[in-house]
Amino acid sequence: MPSAHRPALSRARLATLTLLTLVSVLTGCSADPDPTARVVPSASAPGTPRSGQPTAFDAPAAPAAPAEVAVPSVGITSSLMELGLNTDGTVEVPPAEEGMTAGWYTGGAVPGEIGAAVIIGHNDTRFGEAVFHDLKKIKEGADITVTDKTGKALHFTVTATESVAKNAFPTEKVYGPTQERALRLITCDGDFDAQGHPVDNLIVYATAS
């Protein structure tokens, strides 16, 4: 089991979630995925209405959730499922049988908002090559397009890529607070261990164009 990490959540999620433990992000590239994060509800934020009572202030409209991600330079296009929490408090990843579909982690920022938005996809599964199999070919400066559920296209420019050991996952760098409109794509990478799991993660860093 990978070592635990303690990332920071985006501001948009601080009112409802407190992150307790993050296990290195794994995307189950050749077997079932390992858990990624543990969170629990926090106390209500100041001003949160109780028992459904309205407040004197109207809450701002929530940003539209992402519906699709595309990386034209490496031939990736995928609809996005929402990844929440498992019953044990760990972050979901796309099921192996849906390996050609990536997922947006709803505990992070909404793509295009200030903070780190995270999209997770498999490299390979027991069914074969998966949605992010060719993500390793991406280059700095490449465009990543995220289209939200209203049809609005948001563009991000790749600033860096990084292959890291899963037991040394840079949690704060990936999930920590940022004033940028940041996007991270994560998949598996590297050689396989004795159990058939890739030992590394590939992380693609991008910022809104």
Rank of each mutant, 00 (worst) to 15 (best):
A96K: 04
A70T: 09
T36A: 11
K136F: 13
A56P: 03
H155C: 11
G121S: 06
A43K: 02
G141Y: 07
A153L: 14
G52F: 10
T147G: 14
C188K: 02
I186K: 01
G47W: 09
F156L: 14
D200Y: 01
S44V: 05
H133I: 10
L26P: 00
I138T: 13
L135W: 09
P170L: 09
G103T: 02
E172N: 13
A62D: 11
L26A: 08
D191A: 14
G99Q: 00
K136H: 14
D58V: 11
P2V: 12
D124V: 03
N86Q: 08
T21H: 05
S10W: 05
S42N: 06
A65K: 08
E162R: 14
E82W: 07
S30N: 10
L202W: 01
G196Q: 07
R6I: 14
N201C: 01
D143S: 14
G52D: 07
I119G: 03
T101Q: 08
H122G: 05
V69R: 00
Q195C: 01
A160H: 15
T101G: 00
R181Q: 15
G151K: 14
A96Q: 09
T27W: 00
S10M: 06
S163D: 14
H133T: 05
P198I: 02
P49T: 00
G107P: 01
H197G: 01
